[in-house]
């Protein structure tokens, strides 16, 4: 058996990779799974603060890779969920301190002890991105319904296909249904139409994401938040469950498309 390695990447920066990793990790772990998140954004460490674990860091990813500590010592245990761990990025190094084969070796070592390994990729398509996708069994591309984010997502999907990583699944984040209704934001259906890959989740724009991040408590733990619900639904789909897409007034044609893409 062994863990499933899932990498979240985007091309464009700031579209919600770190937020998604933190929330999927929390959602999976809250369900009893053993989860390790790896922050592969060397030099721009962030997953620690989003998860509220910044005060517990002693060792980081580069310490493990360079043999200054054992793997277990760099795994920070979550405050709330006993089977959730974070391996933080090094803050004072750059991406060249890690290679794709280092990442593969690290995940091989972890694989037998956990159920999920979630990797937070840096933005871009260079070394840090290559490191993040190297060990992935499955890649999730996250985008916003916005011109440059969609274009960059398309580039990344093309690179993943060319590198033999298969076709990734898509998360559309920060969808503002009011703007879509007024014709001023690409709809989920538009984005799917353009990128033509399988959809795994639509996360609405939600102020609670920022509130939750301020506190270091991922929004998936907030059962009143719509974004939290969307992340919990994605976690269930990752596990292979059939979960209907939240009613974002997307219309029936979206449904048909999802079904059609799912069959491909």
């Amino acid at each position: 058996m062994g863990a499933q390695v899932v990498t979240i990447t985007s091309g464009k920066g700031g579209v919600g990779k770190t937020t998604a990793v933190a929330n999927l990790a929390v959602a999976l772990a809250a369900d009893g799974a053993r989860v390790v998140c790896i922050d592969a954004d060397i030099g721009l460490r962030n997953l620690d603060v989003v998860m509220g674990l910044e005060n517990r860091i002693v060792y980081d990813l580069v310490d493990v890779i360079e043999g200054r500590c054992r793997l277990r010592q760099a795994m920070i245990r979550d405050k709330r969920l006993p089977e959730l761990y974070l391996i933080p990025a090094a803050q004072t190094r750059d991406k060249s301190a890690v290679s794709p084969s280092d990442m593969i070796r690290l995940c091989e070592e972890l694989r037998n002890d956990v159920d999920w390994i979630l990797i937070d990729s840096p933005a871009g398509i260079e070394r840090g991105f290559k490191n993040a996708i190297a060990p992935a069994d499955q890649v999730l591309v996250i985008t916003n319904p916005e011109v440059s984010a969609v274009r960059d997502a398309d580039r990344v999907i093309g690179i993943l296909e060319a590198e033999g990583k298969g076709t990734p699944s898509l998360i559309i984040n920060r969808l503002n249904q009011t703007m879509v209704k007024h014709g001023d934001m690409l709809s989920a259906e538009d984005v799917l139409d353009l990128l033509a890959i399988k959809l795994i989740g639509i996360v609405p724009e939600d102020d609670q994401v920022i509130v939750a991040t301020n506190r270091g408590v991922p929004v998936a733990l907030d059962h009143k938040s719509r974004a939290g619900q969307a992340f919990r639904d994605i976690a269930r789909r990752l596990k292979g469950e059939q979960v209907p897409f939240m009613n974002l007034e997307a219309g029936s044609s979206l449904w048909e498309r999802i079904i059609r893409l799912g069959r491909k």
Partner: peptide, 19 residues
């Protein structure tokens, strides 16, 4: 024309050329 429509049409062309 709605801005979302422009966005979609422009992306359709850009993506074909990018790909």
């Amino acid at each position: 024309k709605r801005s979302a429509t422009s966005a979609k049409e422009r992306l359709q062309l850009v993506l074909i050329h990018d790909r």
